[in-house]
Design a protein around this nucleic acid. Structure first.
Length: 628
DNA sequence: GTAGGGTTAG
């Protein structure tokens, strides 16, 4: 018998479906129904849908909302919804693709299935893992287990992905336990997902443990391990994995993603030679044309202070997207070529590429690094009014930096208070840094109060405040802050410097004692200190934390990690070699003076990249104006 | 009774 649906209108469909459906479905249909009935697409012919194969093929091919709704009604009415294959295909269609795609809609359909299978659950869990409410994936997973339906490795994999999305460690651990119960503990893909979860939840040790226990480690597993190292501040170790993974024991071939991750690590460590090695690997393995890799190379070279090479990569690209241009702009910015960065920004638009929020971060940082105050203020306004980009925290950060460096501390503070939402600790820290440079004690105190309000427990903040007080000679305040730090048991982040030698990265912390050549390094440093003193080097006292005897203070300062890295550089490289050092913190005044004089006395160029910018020292001059 | 999983550019 011919189904009555063959020529029914939406009104008719609505009426009919009301018989079977609760009110939400009515709402769904009314949303899906075009406003003008005469423009409605032709109804589906259900004459041909008398077997499930034809229904399934129709479900797969349909790209029209109304028709999907008609099918929905049809499979409900004919009770085909209880057919696993039909319901599965329809669920996939509305959960994962097609015009009705929405986890809410598909969830309602899902609830109509009286005996859902694993595949139904998997589809729903997967849909939620992509959505804005990934927690719901976990609820469904728990519901599924309560109903005694066995999860397969894919179920767990989708749930882990959801947990990663909202960084829900506890949920992930729960799934991890169940994976053992289900006997899927040897599934490499599942374990890789779990590693990523632990890594993203800062559980570095757990990620390593999962990795070690993996029966088979493929390239993706190694990549996740590398990304875990990078995420958890073990960047140097991330680089070493490149060789380890290729060892005979593992025989794993690094792929394009490995290169992408390692380039990030090189950029952070200032590891130029290693970066060049990855560059060759990329070319040899035929990844040279990949946009993402080229973009990452631009960033790596410019963050290593090698703007020429960054520019070569940029110019060699057949196609450039907004990421390529933004990387080049930021590269010019961080290397101190503010005007050039602005020119690049204009050139980019002439090439028909629209800037985005990242581009403006580059442009604003160009202005702040080169002290282009008016330009920066104007770009910030244009970004909002002309390009319709809502300023994000990064943009405010650049602006506070720009205003702060220009000494317009009150304006910077005003900008922060005018922000929608509360400023984050980074922005406040930038302002605090400016207070430190300009010796603005009162504002510094206000800023620190905000930071305490934010429960920011970073020792760096207190150190800046200590510096501020000590440079102003407020020793009783210094003592107060130190007491506060002790009470709150705030630990200072150890300053850490890296220097590269023949592709190997050497890492130094304050008063480092771990390097195999420590005796030679300390002897070299003593010799450098002697030479610099002859040339007039005087230890800068204001950067130390508390009022101590000057002699003791001079001693404490001489072992900052910057100096150890330089001493190592002198020890292992021929005279005249440029020394490139990266530091995780802001360089202190004393080290700045030290390097300035060092570059003159030893006739060496030094390029130091601290947490934000480059300091290039040449024959007793520094190209930046941070400590003048 | 059917399809589906892990890493990734500024």
């Amino acid at each position: 018998m011919a189904p009555v649906w063959s020529s029914c209108s939406n009104r008719c469909l609505l009426a009919a479906t009301n018989l079977h459906f609760p009110s939400y479905f009515t709402a769904a249909i009314s949303i899906a129904t075009p406003q003008h009935p005469e423009n409605q697409p032709e109804s589906i012919s259900f004459f041909s849908l008398n077997n499930k194969e034809s229904i399934i093929s129709t479900i797969k091919s349909i790209s029209n909302k109304t028709h999907l709704l008609q099918i929905h009604a049809h499979i409900l009415r004919t009770t085909l919804i209880q057919d696993a294959a039909v319901s599965h295909h329809f669920l996939c269609r509305v959960a994962l693709s097609g015009p009705l795609q929405s986890p809410t809609y598909s969830h309602r359909f899902f609830q109509q299935i009286s005996n859902p299978f694993v595949s139904h659950y998997n589809t729903m869990i997967r849909a939620y893992s992509f959505s804005d409410s990934p927690q719901k994936a976990l609820f469904l997973y728990q519901d599924m287990r309560r109903r005694g339906i066995a999860a397969n490795p894919l179920t767990s994999s989708f749930v882990v992905k959801s947990c990663i999305k909202f960084l829900y460690l506890l949920g992930g651990v729960q799934v991890h336990c169940n994976i053992f119960k289900d006997g899927h503990q040897s599934d490499s893909l599942l374990l890789t997902a779990l590693m990523d979860l632990y890594s993203q939840c800062q559980k570095y040790d757990d990620a390593c443990k999962v990795f070690d226990e993996m029966p088979q480690k493929d390239t993706v597993a190694w990549n996740v391990m590398i990304s875990c190292f990078i995420r958890n501040n073990r960047t140097r170790d991330a680089l070493s994995l490149f060789d380890v993974m290729q060892m005979e024991k593992y025989e794993c071939v690094p792929d394009d993603v490995t290169c992408l991750l390692l380039l990030q690590a090189c950029a952070r460590l200032n590891a130029l030679e290693f970066g060049e090695r990855i560059h060759s690997y990329i070319m040899v393995h035929g990844y040279g044309g990949a946009l993402n890799l080229s973009n990452s190379l631009i960033s790596m070279y410019s963050r290593c202070g090698c703007l020429d090479k960054a520019y070569d990569v940029f110019m060699g690209m057949k196609n450039k997207n907004v990421v390529s241009w933004s990387a080049m702009i930021s590269g010019l910015a961080v290397n101190g070529y503010g005007r050039k960065a602005i020119e690049a920004f204009e050139e980019m638009q002439r090439n028909g590429i629209q800037p985005d929020d990242h581009t403006f971060t580059g442009v604003l940082s160009a202005c702040s690094h080169s002290g282009l105050l008016d330009e920066g203020v104007s770009f910030f306004d244009r970004m909002i009014s002309e390009f319709g980009i809502t300023p994000a925290i990064h943009h405010y950060g650049c602006m506070v930096d720009l205003l702060g460096r220009a000494g317009l501390l009150d304006k910077a503070y005003q900008l922060i208070t005018s922000m929608e939402g509360k400023p984050d600790s980074t922005v406040l820290r930038t302002l605090l840094g400016a207070c430190r440079i300009h010796g603005h004690v009162t504002l510094g105190e206000q800023v620190i109060e905000h930071l305490i309000e934010l429960k920011a427990q970073d020792a760096g903040d207190y150190v800046l405040l200590l510096n501020l007080y000590s440079s102003a000679g407020h020793w009783e305040k210094v003592a107060e802050v130190r007491k506060l730090m002790r009470e709150k048991s705030i630990q200072t982040t150890p300053g850490c410097c890296t220097i590269e030698l023949k592709g190997a990265v050497h890492e130094f912390v304050v008063d480092d004692n771990s390097h195999s050549r420590k005796v030679e390094i300390y002897n070299t440093l003593d010799e450098i200190n002697k030479q610099l003193k002859i040339a007039g080097y005087v230890v800068e006292l204001s950067s130390e934390l508390h009022k101590i005897d000057d002699k003791e203070k001079g001693y404490a300062l001489s072992y900052h990690s910057e100096k150890l890295a330089i001493a190592f550089g002198v020890l292992v490289t021929p005279p005249g070699t440029t020394l490139r050092v990266a530091s995780n913190l802001r360089i202190c005044v004393d080290c700045h003076n030290f390097l300035k004089l060092f570059s003159a006395v030893y006739n060496r160029d030094v390029i130091l990249r601290d947490h934000k910018r480059f300091h290039r020292f040449r024959r007793g001059h520094c190209s930046c104006n941070d400590y003048w």
